[in-house]
C-alpha cells in the first residue's frame, strides 16, 4: 500500500510570511479531501508533495523514502497532479498526443503509452474524440483531457486540484465515478476542493487546512460534525448536514440517501 508521511514540515516563500507551519500527517489508501479557504496552504501542500517546492524544514517520505533525494521527474512517476486550469498544460493539436506526453516523459514506450492513454480517455468518456483539437472542446472537456493526461501516467497517487470547477451536474458525477474507480484500483486519491457536497459524496477522509496548519483531520462525517471548528475556518458543512443541524439532530448525515433512509426508518419504528 502506498503511504506518504509528512513530518514537521514548514514552508514559506518569504521569511515574514510562513505558508505552512509544522505539518504532520500520514496519507494512506483512504480517498482524502483537502478543504479550507484560499491562502490556507492547500495548493502549496500538494506542490510540496510533488517536489515542485521543497520544504524549509521537515521531510516527506514516500513509501519510506525521502523525496528530497528524488528529482521532480522521478517523483512524477509515482505522484500525478491535475492542475486547476487545463489551459496551463495543453499544447498539442490532438487529444491523444496531449495525453501521451506524460507517459512518454516518464519512460513508457510508444505502445504502452498509447494503451494507457486510450484507457484514460475511455475513463473520462472522451474515447471518440482522440483526434480532435483540444481547443475545439469546451472548458469542461478540456478539464477532462487534463485529468486523462495525468491518469495515463498510471501513478500510485493521483492528486486533483479543484476538479469540479466549471463542471455541471453531469461533469461532477463523472468525476465522482473516476475517483471511485481509481480507489477501486488501489490508488491513493487526494483532492483539493471547495465543493462540500462533493466531499460528502466521495471521500472517506477529510483534512481541513486553516492558516497554514491542519485544523481538523478524520473521517468525513466526523469532520463535518465539528460545527465550531468549521465556522472558524469559514467553512459550511454540506447541505444535508446543514438540514440535520437546523433540525437539531445529534446524528450527522452527509448524503441525501442516508438522511432519507434514517427518517424513513424512524417513521417505520414509530408506526
Amino acid at each position: 500500500m502506498t503511504r506518504i508521511e509528512v513530518q514537521e514540515m514548514h514552508f514559506s516563500y518569504t521569511e515574514q510570511e510562513p505558508i505552512l507551519k509544522g505539518i504532520n500527517i500520514t496519507l494512506d489508501e483512504r480517498s482524502t479531501a483537502i478543504i479550507g479557504q484560499n491562502g490556507a496552504g492547500k495548493t502549496t501542500f500538494v506542490k510540496l508533495l510533488k517536489g515542485l517546492l521543497r520544504p524549509m524544514q521537515g521531510k516527506i517520505l514516500f513509501d519510506g523514502k525521502d523525496i528530497a533525494c528524488m528529482t521532480v521527474a522521478q517523483i512524477a512517476k509515482h505522484i500525478g497532479l491535475v492542475f486547476q486550469n487545463p489551459n496551463d498544460q495543453i499544447f498539442k493539436n490532438n487529444i491523444l498526443d496531449e495525453v501521451m506526453f506524460g507517459p512518454i516523459n516518464i519512460g513508457m514506450d510508444e505502445q504502452e503509452a498509447k494503451r494507457h492513454s486510450q484507457n484514460a480517455l475511455a475513463m473520462v468518456g472522451l474515447s471518440d474524440c482522440e483526434d480532435k483539437n483540444p481547443y475545439d472542446m469546451g472548458l469542461s472537456e478540456r478539464k477532462l483531457i487534463a485529468i486523462a493526461s495525468v491518469l495515463a501516467m498510471d501513478t500510485d497517487v493521483v492528486i486533483f486540484d479543484e476538479p469540479t470547477i466549471a463542471q455541471d451536474y453531469r461533469g461532477i458525477e463523472k468525476i465522482k465515478k473516476i475517483i471511485r474507480t481509481l480507489k477501486a484500483e488501489g490508488k491513493m486519491v487526494l483532492t483539493i476542493t471547495h465543493d462540500m457536497d462533493f466531499v460528502a459524496d466521495c471521500f472517506e477522509r477529510t483534512i481541513v487546512f486553516a492558516k497554514g496548519k491542519i485544523l481538523l483531520d478524520g473521517q468525513t462525517d466526523k469532520v463535518f460534525s465539528k460545527k465550531e471548528e468549521l465556522s472558524q475556518a469559514y467553512l459550511e458543512p454540506p447541505h444535508v448536514t446543514q438540514l440535520c443541524n437546523s433540525l437539531g439532530y445529534d446524528k450527522v448525515f452527509l448524503r441525501v440517501e442516508d438522511f432519507v433512509s434514517y427518517v424513513k426508518s424512524k417513521g417505520i419504528e414509530n408506526k
Partner: peptide
C-alpha cells in the same frame, strides 16, 4: 436536462 434539484428538494421528493 442535466441539472439536479437542491439537496432539500431531493430529500423531500424521496420522502
Amino acid at each position: 436536462y442535466g441539472v439536479t434539484a437542491p439537496a432539500y428538494t431531493r430529500i423531500c421528493k424521496s420522502l
